[in-house]
Design a protein around this nucleic acid. Structure first.
Lengths: 152, 152
DNA sequence: GGGAGATACTTAACATGTTAAGTGAATGCG
DNA sequence: CGCATTCACTTAACATGTTAAGTATCTCCC
């Protein structure tokens, strides 16, 4: 069997870990996890969002998001109110404190990203992301058909 | 701030998830998680290994590995014996049952990998993995220097 | 040879990933 | 209308990720 240390999932995992290793210490200093930071960033960009939409944007599963929102709300970093038209939905938005926290984290985060870009090369980085997007696209279709078969 | 849905960590996360989504159902049918499968594969390739070495090979943190080994041992998929020369170390190896289980999973796993390769293109896949390796390499050095600063 | 420090793991504690089940609200349709 | 189905989310249960602390063993140097 193919040496698994060179398998695609491992390559992706190792690369991602190498990247996140750069960001985690700074986030940690501000009391944020990687996922919490993703949620705040997503909210900062879109004003307010439903939970499902937020899950899609921040690429988190529903249950994870539910827990994290509960915690972020307890820390007053986000606000929540149920939609008037549909009582099932709740609109989530970032709070003033949340914005402030983001402002304190963003500079370091940007600097790290810039350093990564500098080291790896901006052009190569763009190429890499292009390829990652294509990979995702190739498999999205496969995923759907596989599901269809499984459901029969 | 840069649209985070196009950030490098998100690209890597989404790509990896797209890939793993293909494998998980099959692994699940055999009662294995992604990480357990990684460990079995690593062990099958190297006969026997110390826990630390295995952690490096399977790219798992020590605590995760400890738990998983405990469970795999309870399921008789691996075997463990403390090294004679150094009582702290334990040598882990795959059991006969483990080998049998691997044999039952491998065909499907290989087929999925082949399909992914076919869809994305073998050459592009190789290029992608090359780039991922370079990215990891660029950041490995950065990681070390960042740590050095933090420890001061 | 004995005690300080290093090493190899394990345990603990908390956060997230993953799947399944639960809850309350909306929808569609007979 | 009524009620089964769908929908949006939450809770539950179990596995892993992540960091810190604990434990037993080993090493090295005085």
């Amino acid at each position: 069997m193919r040496d698994f240390s060179r398998s695609l999932p491992m390559s992706l995992l190792r690369a991602r870990e190498a990247v996140m290793r750069q960001f985690r210490p700074s986030l940690r200093e501000h009391g944020l996890t990687e996922q919490q930071w993703r949620i705040l960033r997503a909210l900062a960009a879109i004003e307010a969002a439903e939970v499902t939409e937020l899950a899609r944007t921040a690429f988190l599963l529903g249950p994870s998001l539910s827990r994290i929102l509960r915690d972020l709300e307890a820390r007053n970093l986000i606000e929540r109110k149920t939609a008037k038209a549909d009582q099932r939905r709740s609109m989530v938005s970032i709070s003033k404190e949340g914005v402030k926290l983001m402002a304190s984290v963003a500079p370091t985060s940007e600097a790290i990203y810039a350093e990564i870009t500098r080291r790896f090369g901006a052009r190569k980085l763009a190429e890499l992301q292009e390829m990652l997007g294509e990979l995702e696209k190739s498999l999205a279709e496969l995923g759907v058909s596989a599901e269809a078969i499984a459901e029969e």
